[in-house]
Simulated assay, not measured.
Amino acid sequence: MKKKIMGMFLCVTLVLASISTVYAAVDQSGKSLDGYVYLYGAINSSGYGITSVRSNPDNAYLTLSAEFQNVSGVTLANPSYTSSRGVTELPIDDVGGYYLPAGVKHQFSSHGVQGGTSYNAGAVYTYTSIGL
């Protein structure tokens, strides 16, 4: 019985260690924002990014802009995306595109809501390291 419990403990420990490794390359940020309730942004080193709001009552745009840099801080690519009006999510499956230049190490992103008719624009910022 003692070996079985130790084996289960070891298995759970390994699973938790692998999960924490996966999440090490993720960054997320959010803040309360009048009218939109909450603005949220997240990116990961696999190229997934999202900008979202809980509510979009004034038909605003969502944005996601990224800057990819090498280890020396030189910008290699800077894609940006804008949603159609009124949506509450802007998910991007491949923020950097399939053809990022070699040597990308850092991704800085801004996630925003703007262009509404009644409420102020807002932004949150995220960062992740590529190629961990």
Rank of each mutant, 00 (worst) to 15 (best):
M6R: 15
M6L: 15
G7H: 10
M8P: 00
F9L: 15
C11N: 07
C11Q: 09
L14H: 01
L14Q: 08
L14P: 02
V15W: 00
V15D: 02
V15S: 10
L16K: 02
S18M: 11
A24V: 07
S29A: 15
K31S: 07
S32I: 11
G35N: 02
Y38W: 12
L39W: 03
G41Q: 00
A42Q: 03
A42V: 06
I43A: 03
I43L: 02
N44E: 01
N44V: 02
N44W: 03
S46Y: 12
Y48T: 04
Y48R: 09
R54Y: 05
S55V: 00
N56F: 05
P57M: 03
N59K: 06
L62P: 05
L62C: 05
L64E: 04
L64N: 02
L64T: 06
L64I: 08
L64H: 06
A66D: 05
A66H: 01
E67M: 12
Q69E: 14
V71T: 11
G73T: 07
V74T: 09
A77D: 07
P79N: 05
P79L: 04
P79A: 09
S80L: 00
S80R: 04
T82S: 13
S84D: 11
R85K: 15
G86E: 02
V87M: 04
V87C: 11
V87S: 03
V87F: 08
T88W: 12
T88L: 09
L90T: 13
L90V: 11
L90H: 09
D93G: 15
D93L: 13
D93R: 11
V95T: 03
V95R: 10
G96Y: 13
L100T: 08
L100D: 07
L100A: 10
P101K: 12
V104H: 13
V104E: 07
K105W: 05
Q107I: 10
Q107P: 00
Q107V: 15
F108G: 00
S109G: 12
S110Q: 15
H111E: 09
G112D: 08
V113K: 01
G115S: 07
G116M: 09
S118K: 13
S118Q: 14
S118E: 11
A123N: 10
T126K: 11
T128R: 01
G131D: 09
L132T: 10
